[in-house]
Design a protein around this nucleic acid. Structure first.
Lengths: 169, 169
DNA sequence: TCAAGTATTTTGACTCATTCAAAATATTGA
DNA sequence: TCAATATTTTGAATGAGTCAAAATACTTGA
């Protein structure tokens, strides 16, 4: 590690308390962890920590820009310490695994939408969905993150859904 | 409307019950609505409907590919009937408004990541974050979707956070 | 037309992730 | 050392969604 965690937090105006450091360490040690997982890690690191302190530290770190919060559909929030490097995520629909992918070489694609509708855009978030190598290999099918795993089965028809064929909204 | 809702559902192997139709109608009438909002609309349309039926219909419609579920960080799931047209979303950090943006002309940018890490990717989801015209105009600052609105205030330092300056993970 | 089987909806309890509020503790500055 | 401030803990509460089982509505074959 290049600099001490404490110094790192100080440099960014975050008072480096034991709890915050433990949370920061947990995140670096285990990227894409849930708040709950971080609570476990920080707990065994520190001896004891309250869940609320974990949430407090997390939102402080996120607000200070030291940590990024991502929130894939169907999953609780995940935290990572890679910030400001414009990378994206691939999420496995079957097991929920999240991996980092760097953005296509040199491109910041789609980062400006054609028509921004008057919005002032400060961030573009890209998530890829699919199936990870190990799930592909083991031929897994069902999953919590996959809507088709619903208790009511859905057989997708081949036709392309088109409810508003005449409109161009 | 070009075709009847009932026919539309049938065409996609979804048995068109009153509840499902009402949910479908609510979604078309009010794009980017929450399940709760859809429950309201469908309820006043139908007279009465149970919350569970709304959830059931929603997941069936999503699983059948007739409806898309999007889930911006910090917001409950939103539903829309524009599917298969590769559009993206702009979300206002201040008021939560969601608008559609078409993807840059002819491009499906970033849709193939550089290195897919062995994943089989089936979807790319792009969300832009920023501030909408009306919030910009009214100079609003605080918000539920904005992490900096936390009870612990965070003054972002100007320096770029860099916790792993030496590593290239 | 009925009975049985299947599909769908309703009801109500429950879970999980997260937030709120207030009390307790620790830290800092005068 | 005391007061003021910052932080953490505790425990209750909330919102969004799921689960399971009972009730109702449909469909099909006799």
């Amino acid at each position: 590690m290049a600099i001490s965690e404490a110094q790192f937090l100080k440099d960014h105006d975050v008072h480096p308390t034991a709890q915050r450091l433990a949370v920061m360490r947990a995140i670096s040690a285990s990227p894409h962890a849930t708040a709950d997982h971080i609570f476990e890690i920080a707990g065994s690191d520190l001896g004891v920590i309250s869940r609320q302190s974990v949430y407090d530290a997390l939102s402080l770190l996120v607000a200070s820009g030291l940590v990024r919060r991502i929130q894939p559909s169907g999953s609780p929030a995940l935290y990572e310490d890679r910030v400001n490097d414009n990378h994206h995520h691939i999420v496995c629909r079957l097991c929920g695994t999240v991996r980092d992918v760097d953005c296509s070489v040199g491109l910041r694609p789609c980062l400006d939408a054609d028509d921004t509708l008057g919005f002032e855009i400060d961030e573009a978030e890209v998530a890829f969905w699919g199936r990870c190598p190990s799930c592909l290999a083991s031929g897994r099918v069902a999953s919590a993150l996959d809507p088709s795993t619903d208790r009511r089965q859905a057989k997708r028809s081949s036709a392309v859904p088109q409810y508003h064929p005449d409109q161009n909204r």
